[in-house]
């Protein structure tokens, strides 16, 4: 059997497949369908310090091979999470990563400070790239300075590794990714959703109450791959790739392009067993190609002209 394990340096994973934030609930929703311990890890839904109501509906609009969402980070807040959910996740032999949100830099630190006092968390993923909270999709991940400031504060506060989640809605991903690296981020994950909208021709109204939303799913995979490749080529810290991964082959594309691990998002909504199937398909591929260690294919993209 091929060895799928991955060492991110700060975190060892059974395999490179993590469930992406916001598409996997708090993890437990999937227990009726899959063995959560077979996953590399679980990134839970973004958490603010307090519970958050989220945006008015409609919050979802489908587009060809894609999904536009404007959930607005509805969630139960860190306290309820720590009391009601975490004890049930902490017993699992899989990495639990908390997606950390904040309206201000201080709130990010507050969330981390609170969670630092809880057990059973492997790392934090700083969500500085959600397009659904501020007007016009603004978020800290659009600016290298804002990114640097939040990551530095988070790193100073946290006793745990910090992964910075980046936005695709930027002109120069390398510049932002480097800002995160320089501020001490242990890894970066990309991409969050692509700022998008949809129009109902009959009513001439936006199909999302929030007007704008974030596009995910197969439609964004080529964009995600390009950004992951750019970032991975220029960073020293590990890159976690995501965006439109539906199959084992999709995940392999990201690894070959330089990602050390991947996250599976929208695919979980379509098929609650998707993450496990993706792991299985990668394993099958390794067997077929007689690859003993999956990690050997990371960053092996051959760009030399034939």
């Amino acid at each position: 059997m091929a060895d799928l394990s991955i060492d991110l340096g700060f975190l060892k994973l059974r395999n490179p497949v993590l469930a992406a934030s916001g598409t996997f609930g708090y993890g437990l929703e999937f227990a009726p369908f899959i063995d959560l311990e077979r996953l590399g890890g679980i990134v839970v839904k973004g958490l603010y310090f307090y519970a958050r109501p989220g945006n008015p509906p409609p919050r979802l609009a489908e587009s060809p091979s894609g999904l536009i969402n404007s959930i607005g980070l509805q969630g139960i807040g860190v306290k309820a999470f720590s009391q009601e959910i975490l004890p049930r996740l902490a017993g699992l032999r899989t990495a639990v990563i908390v997606n950390v949100c904040g309206s201000t830099n201080e709130e990010y630190a507050q969330v981390i400070d609170y969670l630092d006092r809880q057990e059973g968390i492997a790392a934090y993923e700083l969500n500085i790239s959600c397009p659904n909270v501020e007007q016009d999709g603004l978020c800290p991940a659009l600016s290298p300075e804002a990114t640097h400031a939040i990551v530095r504060l988070a790193k100073r506060t946290s006793r745990r590794p910090v992964i910075t989640k980046l936005s695709p809605n930027v002109t120069d991903i390398v510049c932002i990714a480097k800002a995160a690296e320089e501020a001490g981020s242990d890894a970066v994950s990309l991409i969050n959703t692509v700022l998008a909208m949809a129009v109902d021709v009959e009513t001439r109204r936006p199909r999302l109450a929030n007007v704008f939303g974030g596009l995910s799913g197969p439609a964004i995979k080529p964009i995600a791959l390009r950004l992951v490749y750019q970032a991975a080529s220029r960073l020293k810290i590990p890159v976690i790739g995501l965006g439109g991964i539906m199959s084992g082959r999709d995940a392999l594309e990201f690894l070959i392009a330089g990602a050390m691990a991947v996250e599976v998002g929208t695919a979980n909504l379509v098929d609650p067993e998707a993450s496990i199937r993706i792991i299985q398909e990668m394993e099958d591929w390794c067997e077929e190609k007689k690859i003993k260690k999956l990690k050997d294919i990371i960053g092996t993209l051959n760009v030399a002209s034939p």
């Binding site: 598409t23 509906p57 959930i71 909504l269």
Partner: peptide, 11 residues
């Protein structure tokens, strides 16, 4: 989005 409580899409 999912029908199983994972996405908060159906509020």
């Amino acid at each position: 989005g999912c029908g199983i409580g994972a996405c908060w899409g159906c509020a």
